[in-house]
Design a protein around this nucleic acid. Structure first.
Lengths: 330, 330
DNA sequence: CTACTTTACGTTAACGTTAACGTCAATATG
DNA sequence: CATATTGACGTTAACGTTAACGTAAAGTAG
């Protein structure tokens, strides 16, 4: 016990707490602090956690690590957690583990003080698991029934912005390659797409919408399907994600359709990949990193009782104009 | 204390340890185990950690999260850690924090049992920090003086393989855009490049080598520099990383040089990005995820005394032939 | 059948921290 | 001046776990 060296016993705890609830003389406090500094004292977080039943750690559950979207989320969450003095335990649930067992493990065994969840598991199984955990949780970008706390991106407005850009360029026949059928994001994207079309007086044609998933292969397949079945051929496509857009690009190139000459593309979720594509991709940049940051910040607020609820939809969406969208042929 | 319900006191600890060093009757062991199962007993890792001075957690220090290389490494390390019953604490050191303070924090405050380190910090500062930490550590892909335990990729052989592919296609004048000048990876890449050239009887021309860093911009700049100064113009380029190769591609496109028609490109580090480029990039795939996996596994072996040293160079390098390299013009 | 060994498990203490309580002296109140 | 009040800090116990020690019962040897 490093403290004894300089001064007395566990009065040190009070001094180091710094809290105003403990009244004590400035003199002893100063003595303790200087001794602590001199001895290089570091509190043992394990012991503190055991005593206070608070581990000062957060758990984050993500379905993938090597997808830039999740990497950015984690990066933001890690920054916020560190700023507030929390460690971040990352669990990556793939085939090996379900989000539910990950939540169990984090709370029961690792004693995290709060959970950030962005698993693909279905809401109906996730929501009860989160309620059953006795720690607060914030869900990332999955607004859903039974989920109290959530930080999301305004996918609907992002979709609207992307499609509005195509409309402003003069496109009228705009296809949409969306994500997983039935997903919450898919609903939002379609709503934004449809809203933008309708407020420009363009009718909604369900044959121009295809599910692409989030992979390049999915985008390629969906693009081929649209080319095959949509008559007349669209002059522009709004694609759900960058990877899928890259796939769509491939399909168009294979069909000898020039981008943006014959068909324009706009997509969501900016990343370095957008810049290295040919042509560089016009995208709507979403504040993914900030979503992670705000979610972790909100979670800490919940844990420390500064907030009762976290429900934010992050707005600043920026259209990044590169080379994949241009006015349609005259 | 859940155990009392079914049986006696801390004999349970012995039963649950399962260790053969504790001799006890099968009957009581079975009774304890079944009671534990019935009550859903989960050991409190914090209390155990405090008592045993072992936290069953590893720390990993990485310079970036949104680079696919690090994401893959972390993904592998997480898998190995989980298999062995360890949690993984990820610290991402950017501008805000140096790797040294991260190491300090992980060991002194979070009491991790071992460290995985892949920071950009200079070896001369990192090695003493690791020695000073009293827990074992494994360095990822930074073989360096003073570093005892390391798992790396065989960058030299990978470079050799990439260049050999170009030589086999018939190229003789091959440029090399490498990483940070002075880096260990840079040395290995140049050695492999030079080795391949020399065993094909092609002379090494330092004017064909340029430092590109690891970014797309760096690759673009380096490619332009080579095009400007190398006479006669090379017919192929070997680039250190995928992002830099994408940049080089951009520079070539801007100069109206066809790939692979006029200049071929081969690079290292496969990822989804390679597939979505135009043309899709021929790369040498490195076992990055496995590097993370093996490093974490080796670290646990060090911690648990099953190994005294971890020093592996991972070999399985696979040439992934896509469309960016072809025979030179006749 | 006594004396020593082994087996099986209960008891105790400790890991480092902090909440709760206790004590003593200084100050305030009548 | 006696008593009540407060401020400052020491003492104690507890968080849940396990290593070390203790002890009773069963087994073994002479």
């Amino acid at each position: 016990m490093a403290r004894r060296a300089g001064v007395d016993t566990s009065t040190a705890s009070r001094a180091l707490a710094g809290d105003a609830r403990h009244r004590m003389s400035e003199a002893t406090r100063a003595r303790v602090l200087s001794a602590a500094r001199k001895l290089g004292y570091r509190p043992n977080l394990l012991a503190r956690a055991l005593r206070t039943a608070r581990s000062n750690s957060l758990g984050i559950v993500v379905p993938q690590l090597d997808n830039p979207v999740y990497a950015q989320m984690i990066s933001g969450a890690e920054a916020a957690a560190r700023e507030r003095g929390y460690a971040l335990l990352i669990v990556h649930v793939g085939e090996a583990e379900s989000g539910v067992t990950a939540i169990e493990r984090l709370t029961r065994t690792n004693h995290v003080d709060g959970l950030l969840v962005s698993s693909f598991d279905h809401e109906s199984v996730l929501a009860p698991a989160l309620r059953h955990a006795k720690v607060p949780s914030v869900v990332l970008n999955r607004r859903a029934a039974g989920v109290a706390n959530c930080v999301s991106l305004d996918t609907r407005r992002a979709a609207r912005k992307a499609v509005a850009h195509l409309l402003e360029l003069g496109h009228r026949r705009i296809a949409h390659l969306t994500g997983r059928p039935g997903g919450a994001g898919t609903r939002d994207r379609i709503a934004g797409y449809r809203g933008a079309l309708e407020s420009a007086g363009v009718g909604f044609d369900p044959r121009l919408v295809a599910a692409a998933g989030f992979s390049a292969e999915g985008g390629e397949r969906a693009m081929r399907a649209v080319l095959r079945s949509a008559r007349p051929r669209p002059t522009a496509v709004f694609v759900a994600t960058l990877l899928a857009a890259a796939g769509a690009l491939k399909a168009l190139r294979a069909a000898r359709i020039a981008v943006p000459g014959d068909i324009s593309i706009v997509t969501l979720h900016d990343s370095i990949i957008a810049e290295v594509l040919d042509p560089p991709m016009t995208t709507v940049r979403l504040p993914t990193r900030r979503m992670g940051y705000e979610a972790a910040r909100g979670l800490v607020d919940l844990i420390e009782g500064r907030a009762r609820r976290v429900a934010r939809v992050l707005a600043p969406l920026e259209l990044v104009v590169r080379g994949s969208a241009a006015p349609p042929h005259a």
